[in-house]
Amino acid sequence: MKKVILGFSALCLVFTTSCKEDATVKIKEENVAQAAQRDANAGNFPVISFDKVEHDFGTLEDGTPVETVFKYTNTGNSMLVVSDIKSTCGCTVPSNWTREVAPGETGEFAVKFNGKGANQVRKTVNLTTNTEKGNESVSIKAFINPSANAGSASVTPMQ
């Protein structure tokens, strides 16, 4: 058994020492330059600044559709990319967003809300971006007066 372990150890030693080439031979100058450029730009994330982070539609009658526009500015030093915008429910639909915004430029997106609900309603819209955080959010809110038919359903007591 000692001979097997000794032989296996010798074989491993041969493999580990035979693969040690000079690593500097494998390094390409162009790759070093690209890595240096990438590392220099690593902290230059785009920064998104909104004109408002919440929009209040005020008081609405149940079922009244409304729409607003959120504007955002890239206050960072690299291209802002907004890859997706989704809302927390189907009653709020974001659309027509500016996908790429250069530094100093402004983009926008529309949010349509169907006005359904009762009392105070708040919905969140999430943006997937290439900012350092990776996602941003804005919200809408409204106070919805219940429709006259909402409370008229008859209730039969349990027996």
Rank of each mutant, 00 (worst) to 15 (best):
V69K: 01
K86E: 06
G76N: 02
T131D: 03
G76Y: 02
N44H: 12
V155R: 04
T156C: 03
E108C: 02
N77F: 04
K28P: 06
P46K: 08
E21A: 12
V25R: 13
T124E: 12
V138N: 11
P146E: 13
P46H: 07
E132N: 07
N119I: 02
K133I: 05
W97L: 02
P146Q: 11
S87A: 15
T106N: 07
L6P: 00
T75M: 00
T24N: 14
A110T: 15
S152K: 15
S78F: 05
M1D: 11
S49E: 15
G76H: 02
E21V: 12
Q120A: 11
K116C: 06
F8Q: 01
E29F: 06
A23S: 11
V82E: 04
H55L: 01
A42N: 09
A118M: 03
T129V: 10
N135H: 12
F50K: 11
F15G: 06
G115I: 05
G107H: 08
A110F: 10
E108K: 14
N135R: 13
I48N: 09
K2V: 10
P46F: 06
T106W: 04
G104K: 03
N96Q: 14
I140C: 07
E54P: 00
N145H: 04
F113I: 02
D84C: 01
K3N: 10
K28Y: 08
K86N: 05
K112C: 02
G43A: 13
F143M: 09
V138Y: 12
H55W: 07
E100A: 12
A23K: 12
C91L: 03
F15N: 03
L11M: 10
S147I: 09
N41Q: 12
G76D: 02
F143Y: 15
N126P: 00
V69S: 00
S18V: 09
V93Q: 12
I140L: 10
T68C: 14
N41T: 05
E61C: 00
D51T: 12
F50S: 09
A110I: 14
A142Y: 04
I140V: 15
V47P: 00
D56C: 03
A35H: 09
V32E: 07
N126Q: 13
V4I: 15
E61Q: 13
V66C: 01
E132T: 00
T106Y: 03
S139Y: 04
C19W: 06
L13E: 04
C19M: 14
S152F: 08
T98W: 05
V4L: 15
N149S: 14
E100N: 13
A40F: 14
N74L: 03
T59V: 15
D62I: 01
K71H: 15
S147D: 15
N74H: 02
R99G: 04
S83R: 07
A42Q: 13
Q120W: 09
E67W: 01
T68R: 07
V121L: 09
T68A: 08
S83V: 02
K86W: 00
K20M: 13
P65H: 05
L80H: 02
G117R: 02
Q34G: 03
K52A: 13
G117A: 03
